[in-house]
């Protein structure tokens, strides 16, 4: 048991080291074009802020929606932008997974002694995502009281939201194993996730509510972390952990099932 645990810890440390190394070189590569990098990150922070401003005027004019007000909206955006930013900054190829599969580009990652899926995901960064990632703590410290529990819930919510979004990316990317090229479908599903996760949760009822929790699980990615930040409920916190783990493992199961259908390609590419 001791040996297994040691091996597991060593594997986790090695993979974290690997992710960190890629993150550094991704950033270094982005820094080669400093203006591009900074402008994309800064404009994304402003873009997120602008959305909040629009919602501020909305709630000022129309009032709360079933108890959902501007403060709840900020929380939703903190976890939405934070989770999205974390995934796309660290696992920047997640959004391209479907294309990588349908173009047969997984070949490249198969020739290295690392998990090919992890390797594929971390080998790119999305520059604007760094702005989203930064927006989350800025909005949090501006609008929410900072204490040990709230800061913990901020990081926990971003992390669980990121894992759910990453799992969702893996699932929609895996569709390419069965459908081949299907960028439009993937893009529609992703935008549905984005729309559900950053709009007032109180307006969704009935079947739609079921869909946004169990089909396109945007509800778990932002609504629940936002709820927890408002009022910490232990059972909700534990259910969220459970759902995140199950959903993530499910996405891996689907991916590896699909991988059996993978056929490689002969495309010529250049690394960013």
């Amino acid at each position: 048991m001791d040996k297994v645990l040691k091996k597991l810890i060593s594997m986790v440390v090695k993979n974290l080291d690997f992710i960190w190394a890629y993150l550094k070189y991704n950033l270094a590569s982005a820094m080669e074009f400093r203006f591009n990098f900074l402008s994309q990150a800064i404009f994304m922070i402003l873009n997120d802020g602008l959305f909040l401003l629009i919602w501020y005027f909305f709630f000022q004019y129309f009032g709360d929606l079933n108890g959902f007000g501007f403060r709840e909206m900020i929380a939703l955006w903190i976890f939405g932008a934070g989770g999205f930013g974390l995934v796309n900054a660290v696992f920047g190829n997640a959004a391209n997974l479907g294309t990588i599969i349908s173009n047969g580009e997984l070949d490249f990652y198969f020739s290295f002694p690392k998990n090919h899926l992890l390797h594929a995901l971390v080998s790119r960064t999305d520059l604007s995502a760094w702005g989203d990632m930064l927006f989350a703590p800025i909005a949090f410290f501006l609008f929410f009281p900072a204490n040990l529990l709230s800061i913990f819930l901020l990081f926990f919510g971003i992390l669980s939201g990121a894992m759910i979004l990453l799992a969702f990316y893996i699932l929609i990317g895996s569709l390419s194993f069965w459908l081949g090229r299907n960028e439009v479908l993937q893009s529609s599903l992703f935008h549905a996730f984005l729309a559900f996760s950053t709009n007032p949760s109180s307006v969704f009822q009935g079947v739609v509510k079921f869909i946004i929790f169990f089909v396109i699980p945007a509800g778990f990615a932002t609504f629940w972390p936002a709820d927890l930040l408002k009022e910490f409920v232990l059972s909700k916190f534990l259910y969220l952990i459970l759902f995140t783990i199950i959903f993530f493992l499910f996405s891996l199961l689907v991916y590896y099932r699909g991988l059996k259908r993978y056929s490689s390609g002969n495309l010529i590419n250049v690394r960013g």
């Binding site: 690997f18 190394a21 070189y25 590569s29 080669e32 490249f108 002694p113 390797h119 690394r271 960013g272």
Partner: peptide, 20 residues
């Protein structure tokens, strides 16, 4: 199918491969 990072010096890719 190049393995080197296009925008970085080759030295950076070598170091990354050392990690991999």
């Amino acid at each position: 199918k190049p393995q080197l990072w296009y925008h970085l010096p080759a030295m950076d890719t070598f170091y990354l491969f050392g990690k991999i």
